[in-house]
Design a binder for these strands. Structure first.
Length: 101
RNA sequence: AGGGCAAGCCAUUCUGUCGCGCCGCGAUGAGCGGUGAGGAAAGUCCGGACAGCAUAGAGCACCUCCCUGUGGAAAGCACAGAUGGGCGAAAGUUUAUGGAUCGCGUAACAGAAAACAACCGCCGGUUUGGCCCGGACUUGUUCCGGGGCCGGCAAGGGUGAAAACGUGGGGCAAGAGCCCACGACCGCGUGCGGCGACGUACGCGGGGUACGCACCGGAGGGCUGCAAGGCCAAAUAUAUCGGCGUCUGAGGGCUGCUCGCCUGAGCCGAGGGGUAGGCUGCAUCAGAUAAAUGACAGAAGCCCGCAAGGGUACAGAAUUCGGCUUAUCGGCUUGCCUUAUUU
RNA sequence: CGGGAUGUGGCGCAGUUGGUAGCGCACUUGGUUUGGGACCAAGAUGUCGCACGUUCGAGUCGUGUCAUCCCGA
């Protein structure tokens, strides 16, 4: 996703939240993006680690969305580095809600 | 064996499951093959490459660096060394450094004084009519002591970060490098050693410190930076108002000033309108463009702990290279110092 | 990625030639008032972001470091 797509998604898309993730979504072509704010994690290593965990969780669980494709952008809202299990749990819950909707 | 110093190096390793970027083959798919973070990729503190703009030239400013030699494109760079200081028992380590001392400034508090000096003090004088007080006696135009006054001195003075060479002797009214001997320091000259900073021996001369500014000398510096710059696409408008100007010349020529040179019809301010998407720059086996180089699990090694168990750093490329600085669990190699024991 | 600025009492700020660190608001105590506010008097409050260096002596000078903020397509 490029900057323009993200801005339009943030503007027009819907929002769901479950600690430590915030999910922006709208029906689309299956675009995906992640952001971890520099404000909470000063070191690039930690930001990269969190982005990779979120991406991995999305990759393994995106099939839960079913037929409909969504453009999705995820903010990492938490202030601590959470382990993979916790992140996956949150994301699965979010995706299940979205699919049910 | 313990402790320490210096230099260099490494940055855990394997397996399984599921995956990612780029390149090549393939047909665009499936697939196959290759390749994919660091010693600091970091901070952005220096210096380059590269790019754009500028560049007839001259002078003055300004900024940076400053012991010596070598290396280097250069550097607030590296290595080796010199001298002084700090730390250490030592191995070592750390820090400062051009010249000149003519000029200016500062040295709080304390202290007599912080750089002209003279508060206490020490010494001399106070006479022919000639200051004051006390004492002596032979009662005076006398003598003694003190104060005051005049003059000399800078040795001593609880301070201070720092006090105007040290010790001994001479000298003097008292004193003083005032003079002498020895020593320390500074400068100059000569010899010797060294490429050199410098060291050393001898001789001669000298006597108020430290820091900063200014001064002098040498070396370097055009400016801006990949959000530079190039290409493509998209979009349009300059309505109106004010000021300056068209060869007696506006404005511009991206570090200041002066001269000079080049260019030559627009420029500046208010106000208004449009676009802000993509490719390239981006490499010599990383080369993305909201950014790949991974996630999870299990062993082995190492460390801590009686054990259960825990720990296994700092940290993630964004045009690129040479340095510097900072962060960093732990380990290896080599050389050296030191302590203890045994032989 | 590049350029620039700022860190001083609780808050907002001063502090140049290095020499006991200040101001306003807020705070505490006392007075005044029936009570409160306002006013008057007194008082407390500081690792000067952190570390090292230069110096006899650093808020001030130098170097490094941390944090915050601003600007630039």
């Amino acid at each position: 996703m490029n900057e323009r797509q993200i801005l339009s998604l943030l503007k027009t898309g819907q929002v769901a939240f479950r600690h430590p993730l915030k999910l922006h979504f709208q029906p689309g072509t299956g675009e995906f993006g992640v952001s971890v704010p520099k404000r909470h994690f000063k070191r690039a290593v930690k930001r990269n680690l969190l982005k990779r965990r979120v991406r991995e969780a999305y990759r393994l669980n995106r099939s839960r969305l079913g037929e409909q494709d969504y453009d999705i952008f995820i903010y990492y809202i938490g202030k601590e580095v959470e382990d993979y299990e916790r992140i996956e749990k949150s994301l699965v819950a979010l995706l299940d809600d979205l699919a049910a909707h």
